[in-house]
């Protein structure tokens, strides 16, 4: 599990996170939701040790993210940062192959090639694997970066808005892949902008607002109309669809 205790974070004068203490369960899909500026990405970035911790402690599978060796952490969690923009002119396969770096440190073996091929396949990139990234659309590039994170083949997968730029078919395919990975024992934490993907696929939901945890638990508990209305400060309806909550907020 991921244990976050007593985490505060500020950028300049702005308090981004206040007194965050929570645990994220292993073997589940956890969704971080909340309005813009709630601190979701910051929290994920702190967990992924991309941002230095200012106060508090975070452990992932028992590893202190501030102290554990970086390579060990890289074999424990893979991270998809938000808005990845790459200046390098790499082929899709070359990018995805870098996901194996923590395992081989420059000397890839046959099992590395197999993981890369599997990740490319999972993200529907078989036909694009020899294309340069700058020849791809935004959604295709996003899938290439996702494939890189999948190729890292870590017990934990941290994804910051993985659905950004993906069309409906690829968004659903990604959620199905993540569900399959979850069923095979992996743990997934993702920032989701679109609440209905959280409602339909997440096992555990954390709702952040203004740097605090407003609610967390199963989708059923978090997706109560009053909780969700308070979270986003807007009128919305929650109906049931196939035993899952479905939020109507566009009407």
């Amino acid at each position: 599990m991921i244990a976050v205790s007593d985490v505060h974070h500020h950028i300049g004068q702005a308090q981004i996170l206040r007194d965050i203490t929570l645990t994220l369960p292993a073997g589940k899909i956890t969704a971080l939701i909340g309005p813009n500026g709630a601190g979701k990405s910051t929290l994920l970035s702190l967990v992924a040790r991309l941002t230095p911790l200012q106060q508090g402690q975070i452990t992932v599978a028992g590893l202190d993210v501030q102290r554990a060796p970086s390579r060990e952490l890289a074999r424990t969690m893979a991270i998809l940062p938000q808005n990845v923009a790459v200046f390098s002119r790499l082929r899709v396969r070359e990018l995805v192959a870098f996901g194996r770096w923590p395992h081989h440190q420059g000397r890839p073996g046959p099992q590395d090639a197999a993981k890369v091929a599997a990740a490319l396949h999972d993200m529907g990139l078989d036909d694009l694997s020899h294309r340069f990234l700058d020849q791809l659309s935004g959604g295709q590039r996003q899938r290439a970066h996702l494939a890189m994170a999948l190729a890292q083949d870590t017990p934990w997968l941290l994804l910051d808005e993985p659905l950004a730029a993906l069309d409906m078919a690829h968004a659903r395919a990604l959620m199905q892949t993540l569900a399959r990975l979850r069923d095979s024992g992996k743990s997934i934490v993702m920032v989701l902008h679109e609440v209905n993907y959280a409602a339909a696929w997440a096992d555990h939901v954390v709702a952040l607002k203004a740097g605090r945890v407003l609610a967390h638990g199963t989708p059923e508990t978090v997706f109560a109309p009053d909780v969700l209305g308070a979270l986003y400060d807007t009128r919305l309806r929650v109906i049931r669809q196939d035993g899952r909550p479905l939020v109507l907020h566009h009407l």
Partner: peptide
């Protein structure tokens, strides 16, 4: 080459 992908990616890969 990994550094060229960004600090975040590099750190995520254990560099």
């Amino acid at each position: 080459a990994i550094l060229g992908l960004g600090d975040g990616v590099a750190r995520g890969l254990g560099l």
